Computed example of a mutant assay.
Amino acid sequence: MKFTIDVLGVFLKVVVKINRVTFAPLVVSTLFILLTSLLAHCARRLVHKTINEPFVRLLFEELIAAAELCGCCFELIVVADNFGVATYAIFLFALTIWWSVNWGDATACPYTHIEDVIEGKGDIRKALLKTWAELTGGLLVFKYVQLYWALEISETHKDKAFEECRADLQVPVIYGAIIEGIATCLCRLVSKSLGDLNPRFATAIDAFIGTSLVVAAFDYSGGYFNPVLATSLKAGCEGHTLMEHAVVYWIGACAGSILSVYMYKLPAIQRYVRGGAVANGDSIWADKED
């Protein structure tokens, strides 16, 4: 606890000094994201040291991962609003790689547990418990974000802590659900393929494709592709009802994920995965030589 307080104190001193001298709100956002990731990393290490039961430890890891994901993405909204979608995409790409490397077995995403149930790798009870842990982390982290925003260290945070939020859905509900579903399906197909093909730079490739799909959907549904993330950031916001939110970000995304399970088993996809691939004559696959 003392370490966390010391880190927070140093962080606040740094951002206040930087802001006074250079008025750099993007640096303030960057440092907040780094602090959030650092605190989550420390929390994961603490869980590993203190909890021995594997499933209970995984529940805490899911809670921490969801809190980290949503906490960072709250600040990414500020980045996107003030510095553009391109800057937002760069941050998201880097964060996606960080999360892939550091989360271990945690996913912070409910539909991955549904896929495990369909494929016989998990049971419904555990899937529900992991989803509950993720929602808990995703919903509780807003108080942490709100506390930081209330400090108004940067102009980009002025009145942000208590302002009314607006939904990102800019198309009819059914179209939003289709967009979230198709993009989620594509993301999951890519992830499954990369997992089996095991190319060099698989994490970066996955992050790049996922980020590209998010940017493509950004002005339509918001491009969340994760029910917990969407709920944490946008549930109850002005612009759609809770039922419409559930249809787009829960039913749409989960339907896309389930579809990916069955599409991945199609002979054409399996032939590609089993056969590997060579791009432009240069092998990028781990089991081939350049």
Rank of each mutant, 00 (worst) to 15 (best):
I90T: 11
A183M: 13
A108N: 04
E163W: 02
A204H: 12
G210L: 01
N82Y: 15
E61Y: 02
M263P: 01
V15L: 08
I18A: 15
G281E: 07
F225Q: 01
N52M: 11
S260N: 03
T211G: 03
A230T: 03
F83C: 10
N280Y: 14
S232L: 05
A204Q: 15
C42N: 13
P25E: 12
P110K: 04
T136K: 12
N226Y: 04
D6W: 13
G281S: 08
G138K: 01
T87C: 15
L139Y: 08
G275V: 00
L12T: 11
V173K: 03
E289C: 02
N280R: 14
I90C: 14
A161Y: 00
S257M: 11
C42E: 14
L213A: 05
L35V: 05
C165G: 15
I114M: 09
T96N: 14
A43Q: 09
T96V: 10
I124H: 08
V85K: 10
G239H: 12
G236F: 07
I33W: 00
G138M: 04
P227S: 03
C70M: 04
E115G: 13
E53A: 11
L95M: 15
P110L: 01
V247D: 06
V27S: 10
E155H: 15
K130H: 01
K160Q: 12
F162V: 03
P25T: 11
N19W: 02
V79L: 12
L46N: 14
S283N: 08
V101G: 08
D196Q: 14
D206F: 14
K192D: 06
K2V: 13
W99M: 12
V101A: 11
C72G: 06
D282G: 06
A127F: 01
H48V: 01
A86D: 06
V228G: 00
L266R: 05
Y175F: 11
V214L: 15
R45M: 12
R166E: 13
I33M: 11
T156Q: 04
S29V: 13
D123W: 03
D116V: 01
G236D: 03
I64H: 01
S193C: 10
A67E: 01
I18L: 13
I5V: 11
A255S: 12
L26V: 12
V16P: 04
C109Q: 08
K49L: 06
L69C: 05
L59T: 00
E152A: 05
L197V: 10
H41S: 11
K13L: 13
V56K: 07
L194H: 04
G176S: 05
K192M: 10
L95I: 11
I51D: 00
I77T: 10
A108L: 03
G137S: 07
C70L: 07
F83R: 04
F142E: 00
Y111F: 15
G276V: 05
F162S: 04
L46W: 14
E155D: 15
E75H: 02
E163Y: 03
N198D: 14
V215A: 05
Y148T: 09
V214W: 05
E163I: 10
I51F: 03
L39F: 02
G120C: 09
T30F: 14
W98I: 13
W149N: 00
V173D: 06
Y148G: 06
F60S: 02
R166G: 15
R20P: 00
K121W: 04
E68G: 06
A217S: 11
N226M: 06
C73I: 09
A202C: 10
V7C: 08
F162P: 00
S37V: 09
F3I: 06
W132L: 13
